[in-house]
Simulated assay, not measured.
Amino acid sequence: MRRFRPRRWLVWTLVPVLVLLISLWGTWQVSDSRTFQFYGGLTDRVDTADKVVALTFDDGPTEGTPEVLKALAEAQVKATFFVTGRELAAHPEHGKAIVRAGHELGNHTYSHQRMVLVGGDFVRSEVERTDALIRAAGHTGEIHFRPPNGKKLLSLPRYLAQHQRQTIMWDVEPESDGTDAADPAAITRAVLEKTRPGSIVLLHVMYPVRQPSLAAVPGLVAGLKERGYRFVTVSELLALRR
Protein backbone atom coordinates (compact mmCIF):
# COMPACT_ATOMS: atom_id res chain seq x y z
CA MET A 1 0.00 0.00 0.00
CA ARG A 2 1.24 3.42 -0.88
CA ARG A 3 1.93 5.64 2.14
CA PHE A 4 0.10 8.95 2.13
CA ARG A 5 2.39 11.92 1.94
CA PRO A 6 1.03 15.44 2.00
CA ARG A 7 1.85 17.46 -1.04
CA ARG A 8 4.83 19.70 -0.45
CA TRP A 9 3.05 22.78 -1.74
CA LEU A 10 0.29 22.25 0.80
CA VAL A 11 2.76 22.09 3.68
CA TRP A 12 4.58 25.19 2.53
CA THR A 13 1.26 27.01 2.26
CA LEU A 14 -0.26 25.98 5.58
CA VAL A 15 2.81 26.47 7.79
CA PRO A 16 3.21 30.21 7.10
CA VAL A 17 -0.54 30.70 7.56
CA LEU A 18 -0.44 28.94 10.93
CA VAL A 19 2.60 30.93 12.01
CA LEU A 20 0.87 34.16 11.01
CA LEU A 21 -2.31 33.24 12.89
CA ILE A 22 -0.38 32.32 16.02
CA SER A 23 1.62 35.57 15.81
CA LEU A 24 -1.55 37.63 15.42
CA TRP A 25 -3.16 35.86 18.36
CA GLY A 26 -0.07 36.47 20.51
CA THR A 27 0.06 40.13 19.49
CA TRP A 28 -3.59 40.59 20.41
CA GLN A 29 -3.04 38.93 23.79
CA VAL A 30 -0.13 41.22 24.60
CA SER A 31 -1.94 44.37 23.44
CA ASP A 32 -4.93 43.45 25.60
CA SER A 33 -3.02 42.33 28.69
CA ARG A 34 -3.79 44.10 31.96
CA THR A 35 -0.49 43.04 33.53
CA PHE A 36 2.18 42.93 30.78
CA GLN A 37 3.76 45.13 28.12
CA PHE A 38 7.06 45.04 26.22
CA TYR A 39 8.49 48.35 27.48
CA GLY A 40 8.49 50.36 30.68
CA GLY A 41 6.39 50.08 33.80
CA LEU A 42 2.81 48.94 34.14
CA THR A 43 0.64 49.02 37.27
CA ASP A 44 -2.69 47.24 37.57
CA ARG A 45 -2.63 47.28 41.39
CA VAL A 46 -0.14 48.00 44.15
CA ASP A 47 1.06 45.20 46.40
CA THR A 48 0.40 46.57 49.87
CA ALA A 49 -1.04 45.39 53.15
CA ASP A 50 -2.79 48.73 53.66
CA LYS A 51 -6.52 48.60 52.92
CA VAL A 52 -6.46 51.30 50.28
CA VAL A 53 -8.20 51.45 46.91
CA ALA A 54 -8.01 53.85 43.98
CA LEU A 55 -11.32 54.65 42.31
CA THR A 56 -10.78 55.68 38.69
CA PHE A 57 -13.09 56.93 35.94
CA ASP A 58 -12.36 56.86 32.21
CA ASP A 59 -13.47 59.35 29.53
CA GLY A 60 -15.01 62.79 29.72
CA PRO A 61 -15.32 65.34 31.05
CA THR A 62 -18.89 65.77 29.82
CA GLU A 63 -22.04 67.57 30.88
CA GLY A 64 -22.48 64.74 33.37
CA THR A 65 -19.37 65.75 35.33
CA PRO A 66 -21.21 67.85 37.96
CA GLU A 67 -23.39 64.84 38.84
CA VAL A 68 -20.29 62.67 39.24
CA LEU A 69 -18.59 65.26 41.43
CA LYS A 70 -21.72 65.57 43.56
CA ALA A 71 -21.79 61.80 44.14
CA LEU A 72 -18.13 61.80 45.18
CA ALA A 73 -18.60 64.81 47.47
CA GLU A 74 -21.52 63.12 49.21
CA ALA A 75 -19.47 59.93 49.57
CA GLN A 76 -16.47 61.99 50.79
CA VAL A 77 -13.90 60.27 48.60
CA LYS A 78 -11.32 61.35 46.05
CA ALA A 79 -10.90 59.74 42.64
CA THR A 80 -8.69 59.85 39.56
CA PHE A 81 -10.29 60.90 36.25
CA PHE A 82 -8.56 59.67 33.08
CA VAL A 83 -9.89 62.22 30.61
CA THR A 84 -9.59 62.56 26.85
CA GLY A 85 -8.11 65.71 25.37
CA ARG A 86 -10.93 66.16 22.89
CA GLU A 87 -13.58 66.18 25.61
CA LEU A 88 -11.46 68.28 27.95
CA ALA A 89 -11.02 70.85 25.18
CA ALA A 90 -14.80 70.91 24.70
CA HIS A 91 -15.53 71.20 28.45
CA PRO A 92 -12.56 72.95 30.11
CA GLU A 93 -14.78 74.21 32.93
CA HIS A 94 -15.54 70.64 33.98
CA GLY A 95 -11.86 69.74 34.02
CA LYS A 96 -11.18 72.71 36.28
CA ALA A 97 -14.08 71.67 38.52
CA ILE A 98 -12.55 68.21 38.93
CA VAL A 99 -9.27 69.74 40.06
CA ARG A 100 -10.96 72.26 42.38
CA ALA A 101 -12.81 69.41 44.07
CA GLY A 102 -9.47 67.82 44.97
CA HIS A 103 -9.54 64.97 42.47
CA GLU A 104 -6.76 63.93 40.13
CA LEU A 105 -6.66 64.23 36.35
CA GLY A 106 -4.99 61.57 34.22
CA ASN A 107 -4.32 61.28 30.48
CA HIS A 108 -6.53 58.99 28.35
CA THR A 109 -5.19 60.23 24.96
CA TYR A 110 -6.66 63.03 22.91
CA SER A 111 -8.94 61.14 20.52
CA HIS A 112 -9.51 57.84 22.38
CA GLN A 113 -8.16 55.77 19.50
CA ARG A 114 -6.73 52.34 20.21
CA MET A 115 -2.99 52.72 20.71
CA VAL A 116 -1.85 49.53 18.98
CA LEU A 117 -0.90 49.86 15.31
CA VAL A 118 0.19 53.48 15.59
CA GLY A 119 3.45 55.33 15.08
CA GLY A 120 5.61 57.35 17.45
CA ASP A 121 4.50 60.76 16.13
CA PHE A 122 0.85 59.86 16.63
CA VAL A 123 1.52 58.68 20.18
CA ARG A 124 3.43 61.86 21.01
CA SER A 125 0.64 64.06 19.70
CA GLU A 126 -2.08 62.15 21.54
CA VAL A 127 -0.26 62.28 24.86
CA GLU A 128 1.28 65.73 24.78
CA ARG A 129 -1.79 67.60 23.51
CA THR A 130 -3.79 66.11 26.36
CA ASP A 131 -1.06 66.82 28.90
CA ALA A 132 -1.19 70.51 27.93
CA LEU A 133 -4.96 70.64 28.44
CA ILE A 134 -4.65 68.89 31.81
CA ARG A 135 -2.11 71.49 32.92
CA ALA A 136 -4.43 74.26 31.72
CA ALA A 137 -7.17 72.78 33.91
CA GLY A 138 -4.97 73.35 36.96
CA HIS A 139 -3.46 69.91 37.58
CA THR A 140 0.03 70.36 39.00
CA GLY A 141 1.19 66.85 39.94
CA GLU A 142 2.46 63.98 37.85
CA ILE A 143 0.15 63.15 34.95
CA HIS A 144 -0.57 59.44 34.84
CA PHE A 145 -1.55 57.71 31.61
CA ARG A 146 -4.11 55.04 30.76
CA PRO A 147 -4.57 53.75 27.19
CA PRO A 148 -8.08 53.62 25.72
CA ASN A 149 -9.61 50.17 26.19
CA GLY A 150 -6.33 49.18 27.85
CA LYS A 151 -4.78 48.56 24.42
CA LYS A 152 -1.02 49.06 23.96
CA LEU A 153 1.70 47.30 22.02
CA LEU A 154 5.02 48.89 21.00
CA SER A 155 4.97 52.62 20.20
CA LEU A 156 2.98 53.71 23.24
CA PRO A 157 4.92 51.80 25.94
CA ARG A 158 8.20 52.86 24.29
CA TYR A 159 7.18 56.54 24.39
CA LEU A 160 6.09 56.30 28.03
CA ALA A 161 9.31 54.53 29.04
CA GLN A 162 11.39 57.20 27.31
CA HIS A 163 9.58 59.85 29.38
CA GLN A 164 9.78 57.95 32.69
CA ARG A 165 6.04 57.36 32.76
CA GLN A 166 4.16 54.13 33.18
CA THR A 167 0.90 52.61 32.05
CA ILE A 168 -1.86 52.65 34.65
CA MET A 169 -4.27 49.74 34.24
CA TRP A 170 -6.70 48.21 36.75
CA ASP A 171 -7.57 44.94 38.43
CA VAL A 172 -11.29 45.49 39.14
CA GLU A 173 -13.54 46.15 36.13
CA PRO A 174 -17.17 45.23 36.88
CA GLU A 175 -18.51 46.62 33.61
CA SER A 176 -16.64 44.10 31.45
CA ASP A 177 -15.94 41.04 33.61
CA GLY A 178 -19.29 39.34 33.10
CA THR A 179 -21.15 41.42 35.69
CA ASP A 180 -24.55 42.79 34.66
CA ALA A 181 -23.44 46.35 33.85
CA ALA A 182 -27.06 47.53 33.77
CA ASP A 183 -27.60 46.65 37.45
CA PRO A 184 -26.06 49.03 40.02
CA ALA A 185 -26.42 46.41 42.76
CA ALA A 186 -24.53 43.84 40.67
CA ILE A 187 -21.74 46.34 40.00
CA THR A 188 -21.49 47.11 43.71
CA ARG A 189 -21.33 43.41 44.62
CA ALA A 190 -18.62 42.76 42.04
CA VAL A 191 -16.46 45.59 43.34
CA LEU A 192 -16.85 44.45 46.93
CA GLU A 193 -16.01 40.86 46.03
CA LYS A 194 -12.95 41.59 43.90
CA THR A 195 -11.28 44.55 45.59
CA ARG A 196 -8.06 43.77 47.47
CA PRO A 197 -5.63 46.07 49.29
CA GLY A 198 -4.01 48.19 46.60
CA SER A 199 -6.70 47.61 43.96
CA ILE A 200 -7.45 50.01 41.12
CA VAL A 201 -11.15 50.08 40.25
CA LEU A 202 -12.24 51.15 36.76
CA LEU A 203 -15.68 52.60 36.05
CA HIS A 204 -17.21 54.63 33.23
CA VAL A 205 -19.69 57.18 34.56
CA MET A 206 -19.61 60.12 32.16
CA TYR A 207 -22.33 59.16 29.68
CA PRO A 208 -26.08 58.57 30.11
CA VAL A 209 -25.70 54.92 29.07
CA ARG A 210 -23.45 54.45 32.13
CA GLN A 211 -25.95 55.69 34.69
CA PRO A 212 -25.96 52.26 36.43
CA SER A 213 -22.22 52.64 37.11
CA LEU A 214 -22.71 56.10 38.60
CA ALA A 215 -25.64 54.83 40.65
CA ALA A 216 -23.37 52.10 42.05
CA VAL A 217 -20.78 54.55 43.40
CA PRO A 218 -22.47 55.37 46.75
CA GLY A 219 -23.05 51.70 47.52
CA LEU A 220 -19.59 50.47 46.63
CA VAL A 221 -17.95 53.33 48.52
CA ALA A 222 -20.05 52.66 51.62
CA GLY A 223 -19.41 48.92 51.36
CA LEU A 224 -15.65 49.27 51.04
CA LYS A 225 -15.51 51.78 53.87
CA GLU A 226 -17.41 49.33 56.07
CA ARG A 227 -14.68 46.79 55.28
CA GLY A 228 -12.00 49.20 56.42
CA TYR A 229 -10.86 50.59 53.08
CA ARG A 230 -9.89 54.18 52.46
CA PHE A 231 -9.92 55.80 49.03
CA VAL A 232 -6.80 57.35 47.50
CA THR A 233 -5.82 58.81 44.15
CA VAL A 234 -3.56 56.88 41.79
CA SER A 235 -0.63 59.11 42.80
CA GLU A 236 -1.22 58.36 46.47
CA LEU A 237 -1.50 54.65 45.73
CA LEU A 238 1.78 54.59 43.78
CA ALA A 239 3.49 56.50 46.60
CA LEU A 240 2.69 53.64 48.97
CA ARG A 241 4.64 51.26 46.74
CA ARG A 242 7.61 53.59 46.59
Rank of each mutant, 00 (worst) to 15 (best):
R2T: 08
F4I: 11
R8Y: 11
W9Y: 07
L10R: 14
T13Y: 06
P16K: 12
V17P: 01
L21I: 12
S23L: 15
G26Y: 11
G26T: 12
T27M: 11
W28S: 09
Q29D: 11
S31R: 05
S33D: 14
T43K: 09
T48W: 13
K51V: 08
V53M: 10
A54D: 08
L55W: 12
L55C: 03
T56L: 00
T56S: 10
D58L: 02
D58Y: 02
P61S: 00
T62C: 10
T62N: 12
T62F: 03
P66R: 01
E67N: 13
V68G: 05
L72S: 03
E74A: 15
A75M: 01
V77T: 10
A79F: 06
V83P: 09
E87I: 00
L88F: 05
A90D: 15
A90K: 15
H91G: 04
H94I: 00
V99N: 09
V99K: 08
R100A: 15
A101C: 06
L105C: 06
G106H: 04
G106P: 00
H112M: 08
Q113W: 08
V116D: 05
F122G: 04
V127Y: 14
E128V: 13
T130K: 04
T130S: 09
I134G: 05
I134P: 02
A137Y: 12
G138Y: 09
H139T: 00
T140E: 14
G141S: 14
I143H: 08
F145M: 01
P147S: 11
P148G: 01
G150W: 03
H163A: 06
R165M: 11
R165I: 02
R165H: 13
T167S: 15
I168K: 02
V172H: 04
E173V: 10
E173L: 13
E175S: 06
D180S: 10
D180Q: 08
A181Y: 11
A181W: 13
A182R: 13
A186P: 01
I187T: 02
L192W: 04
L192G: 01
L192M: 10
R196S: 11
P197W: 06
S199E: 07
V205G: 10
Y207Q: 12
Y207D: 10
Y207C: 00
P208V: 07
Q211E: 15
Q211F: 10
P212T: 14
A216V: 05
V217D: 01
V232T: 10
V234M: 06
S235L: 04
L237D: 05
A239N: 07
L240H: 07
R242Y: 07
